[in-house]
Amino acid sequence: MNSDSPAAVPHGGATNISAVHPDIIQTHIFTRLDGPTIASAACASSHLHAISADEKLWRDICHHTWPSTAEDLVHRLISTFPAAHRSFYYDSFPTLHHRRPNNRRRHRQGPPPTSELISAVDIRYQDRLVISKTHETETVSGWFKCSPFRVDLLDPKETVPSPAKFQGGEDACQSDLEENLTLSWILIDPTRKRAANFSSLRPVSVTRHWLSGDFQVRFATILAGDRRDEFVQCGAVVTCDGKEGGELQVKEVSLLMEDMDGKNLNGKDSLVILQEAMEGGERRKKRGEERERYQDYLKKKRERFEGKVRREKRLDMVCIVSGVTIFLAWTYVFLRGYS
């Protein structure tokens, strides 16, 4: 072979990924990818897995995906997770699917209940950040345990301007909010070092209040309840108001828990369900499934209500028949005795 000929390169000139310097992969490749893509790449080889474990990489991804995680309180909490920001990302992305197996009862024993829940909330309109805020909720007082579970992100008189416009009429505005408004509501359990995103990310419904005229944008995650075939709605509602032709103002952002009878769960029961969902809920990457689960939940809720109405009607009929029968029996006895 001629000495000037290039040396033969195995594999048709391809270079093994392990030959690429880790700094190049970290700074020039991984920084251009999103979290799911990096997680998939980490499964390709032990070399990529080791590089993808870099804490700064996942911290930057978390801060970009959820700006609220950059706040000092949340940042400190995430640093206590087993793999810090990587663990937090795997817990919180993207949506939660919680369905308790039929052959397993709810376990109420385990690590002690947390003394607080931390909310990290980010609202965007057309990918423009509208609200990025954290909130602390204590979970040990009698007031929390016995009162309906509710987390209010904004102060009573606080409003936040948004880029959304109220134009084109009510239907057009509802459609615009449904397509362009997104919400992430991550609950963090500092005691168990777990987190989960309890928002559907995109709205499951947009309605206008008949009295106030406010637009109520609902995001919902359906969770397993206490009993078999029992489900609970963890719903986040963003309330916006504004005059036609002007900007919409966000005036209320709240998180509530509701059972299939339409009753709000108290703090004690809600905390048990939320913690179990963090521990056992499956993180799903399929988009659009949340709306399907919400519609299925509403269908089950209607069927439950209709069944309850039918049972009450049957009970009323039994009471009426029993009353008439007793009346006729006493009438017969009275007339017979009189004769």
Results as ranks from 00 to 15, higher is better:
209 H>R: 03
62 C>H: 04
17 I>G: 08
26 Q>S: 13
305 F>Q: 11
266 N>I: 10
158 E>D: 07
250 V>F: 00
9 V>M: 08
232 V>D: 06
225 G>S: 11
29 I>Y: 04
20 V>Q: 10
126 Q>T: 03
331 T>M: 02
190 P>W: 07
274 L>T: 08
53 A>F: 03
84 A>T: 10
128 R>V: 04
80 T>S: 15
201 L>C: 03
12 G>E: 05
97 H>I: 00
288 G>V: 10
323 G>D: 07
289 E>D: 09
60 D>P: 00
13 G>A: 06
267 G>N: 09
187 L>V: 05
251 K>H: 02
43 C>M: 06
92 S>Y: 02
21 H>A: 12
168 G>Y: 02
114 T>S: 15
245 G>Y: 07
333 V>K: 09
283 R>G: 05
188 I>Y: 04
121 V>E: 06
273 I>T: 11
193 K>T: 03
339 S>M: 14
182 T>R: 12
13 G>N: 04
179 E>W: 03
240 C>G: 00
290 E>W: 10
201 L>V: 07
45 S>A: 04
30 F>H: 01
337 G>W: 08
258 E>L: 15
2 N>I: 05
153 L>Y: 02
208 R>E: 05
194 R>Q: 13
111 P>H: 08
235 G>D: 11
32 R>K: 12
124 R>C: 07
102 N>V: 00
56 K>R: 07
236 A>E: 01
26 Q>F: 07
52 S>A: 15
12 G>Y: 04
264 N>Y: 11
274 L>R: 05
268 K>A: 15
99 R>I: 00
22 P>Q: 05
4 D>A: 13
47 H>F: 14
266 N>V: 10
77 L>G: 13
183 L>E: 11
108 R>F: 14
294 Y>S: 09
213 G>M: 05
273 I>K: 07
222 I>D: 11
43 C>K: 06
164 A>W: 00
158 E>Y: 02
186 I>L: 05
8 A>G: 11
276 E>R: 07
165 K>D: 01
304 R>S: 06
252 E>K: 14
251 K>T: 07
31 T>D: 14
124 R>Q: 08
110 G>T: 02
92 S>F: 02
234 C>G: 09
6 P>C: 15
116 E>T: 15
221 T>F: 02
25 I>T: 06
169 G>T: 13
338 Y>E: 14
129 L>M: 08
128 R>G: 00
237 V>I: 10
161 P>E: 01
15 T>Y: 12
287 R>C: 10
285 K>F: 12
261 D>C: 05
273 I>H: 03
270 S>Y: 11
293 R>Y: 00
204 V>S: 06
131 I>Y: 00
228 R>Y: 01
37 T>D: 13
253 V>A: 12
258 E>Q: 15
303 E>Y: 01
86 R>H: 04
287 R>Q: 13
102 N>G: 01
331 T>F: 00
137 T>Y: 01
266 N>D: 15
180 N>W: 08
106 R>C: 03
295 Q>L: 13
56 K>S: 07
263 K>D: 04
233 Q>L: 09
319 C>R: 14
212 S>G: 13
297 Y>P: 03
166 F>K: 10
165 K>W: 01
255 L>H: 09
14 A>V: 09
55 E>N: 13
332 Y>H: 08
152 D>C: 05
154 L>A: 04
98 H>N: 03
203 P>T: 02
